[in-house]
Amino acid sequence: MNKVTSTTAEAVASIPDGARVMIGGFGGSGAPIELIHALIDRFRATGRPGNLTVINNNAGNGDIGIAAMIKSGMVAKMVCSFPRSSNAEAFNEKYLAGEIELSLVPQGTLAERIRAAGAGIPAFYTPSSYGTELAEGKPTEEFDGKMYVRERWLKADVALIKGQKGDPMGNLTYRLAGRNFNPLMAMAADRTIAQVAELGAPGSIDPEQVITPGIFVDTLVEVPEPQQEEVLVRTGVVY
């Protein structure tokens, strides 16, 4: 089995217009910058894919990564828990101008909806958001004397994720707190594309250390010494 492709451009070549795209990372930690930039390159060259729904905890920062996707005009909707950040002008401007849609989801609910999609669980009950405006219109139910809100799974057409080590089977490890949403999104998309800093032969990752088993990954591309979003933002890089 060999899921490896040689370039980021090839890895994102077939993502269609209107796709629902999960992008791993929490802020800049674990964000697959090179895959995102390959997608922006394709949009700039061909006008596609546009009208995307992007699912991420945040809504981009600075002028790189998801913020650059938003600025380029290829994103119609964000699904996230915390679109505010120190340099979130790209999203803020479009949102306040009514040019981008927002679905705001509590962070734990976002994680569990993604996990549920990957696990084949269409809905679940959570105490989070009960009695708040984010629960309006959602079914509620009492369990053992406490009220809960029913939430639906959240699926995607594609997930772009960032691993540390990978092998041709698609097995992945993650670096530090860069794990965050990446393993969940890998399970929840029809097609998962992972960039990894170190690509090794099958067996190069101790099976006891595998975090995401290869069954959840469709395509891998090696990106040695990947860029780090926070570092790019702090150095004022514009993509």
Binding site: Q107, N180, E230
Partner: peptide, 28 residues
């Protein structure tokens, strides 16, 4: 700072002996 090692406020942190990492669903 290692910006892959941050807290929920996106601030850089350090680890104490015995620290652990986990994904978001486990975290919540």
């Amino acid at each position: 700072e290692d910006w892959d090692l941050i807290n929920a406020g996106k601030k850089a942190i350090t680890l104490k002996p015995g620290a652990s990492f986990f994904h978001h669903a486990d975290s919540f």
